[in-house]
Amino acid sequence: MHAVDDLRAFDGLRQGVVFCAWTGMNPMSGQRVQALLSIQVQIGCPVMLLTPATIADWQHPEHPFHPAFPFLSSVHQADYLRVYLMHHYGGGYTDIKHTSRAWAPFFARLRANPGHDLLGYTEIGPQGVAPVPPPIGDLLRANYQHLVGLCAFVGRRYSPFTTAWMAQTHALLDAKLAALQASPAQHPQDQTGVQLPDGRISTYPLAWTELLGNVFHPLVLALRDRVLHDEIAPSFTHYR
């Protein structure tokens, strides 16, 4: 599937489109390629893979990407894109991990429940919760069964959930913009304090889960009445 001509009218939930992203210039491993093939074969819906060559095709004409985007690591660019795509287009999003499930029932269930904004899989346990500091982190881990995970979900565009998610993500990037400009990512998996391949300690100003899980999980708990749970999780093994 290719990017559409009129992004303003694109509704991924209505059209049953699933997004995934490979934002780095590094090639996929054989395992990752097999995971992508499983998505394309098993999911039973149109799949849109965003790559460095196609990311710009999905920039909404009235809502450009945040100016911090070029300074993010490849991982954090993918984190940002799943928020942006869900807010402006809706539909499905999956990490490139092995899957064996058809997604049409998940789309149908969310369409049939207009009071809900997101459908995901129940978080796997306290260990799956983003490492948010206490006391919020303790509350999240104690209530993990009310949370959904970040690796696969279906969302409704311009919903209360995605509006809050996009706003909080942009507020964080606004606060970090100057630091990101001064110390942009040097590695696809860059994060604060990590040792880079040349031995230096990274001064990149974002922690591993800061842009995604640290925002997403507290929001899911706060808006849990707007979130559906279902068996949409991919496999969490043998994908690297």
Rank of each mutant, 00 (worst) to 15 (best):
M1A: 13
M1P: 11
D5G: 03
D6H: 13
D6Y: 04
D6A: 09
A9L: 12
D11L: 09
V18M: 15
C20V: 08
W22P: 00
G24F: 00
I39H: 01
Q40A: 10
I43A: 15
C45W: 01
C45F: 02
T51H: 09
T54Q: 06
I55V: 15
D57M: 09
Q59M: 14
H60F: 11
P61W: 03
P61Q: 03
H66Q: 07
L72M: 09
S74I: 02
S74W: 06
Y84R: 12
H87S: 06
G92W: 01
D95G: 06
H98I: 11
H98Y: 12
H98P: 08
F107H: 03
F107R: 01
A108H: 13
D117R: 00
G120M: 08
G120L: 07
T122C: 13
I124Y: 14
V129M: 05
P131F: 05
V132N: 12
P133Y: 06
I136H: 10
L139C: 13
L139H: 13
L140S: 11
L140T: 08
L140G: 09
A142E: 14
Q145A: 14
H146R: 14
V148S: 09
V154S: 05
V154H: 05
G155F: 02
G155S: 15
R157Q: 13
S159Y: 02
P160V: 04
T163K: 02
W165L: 13
W165S: 02
A167K: 15
T169L: 09
T169S: 12
L173C: 08
D174I: 10
K176G: 03
K176T: 04
L177H: 06
A179D: 05
A179F: 00
P184I: 02
P197A: 09
P197S: 10
G199K: 10
G199Y: 05
S202H: 08
S202T: 04
T203D: 12
L206Y: 01
W208Y: 15
T209P: 00
T209W: 14
L211Q: 04
L211E: 03
L212C: 11
P218C: 12
L219H: 13
R224G: 00
E231P: 00
I232R: 01
P234H: 14
F236I: 06
Y239W: 15
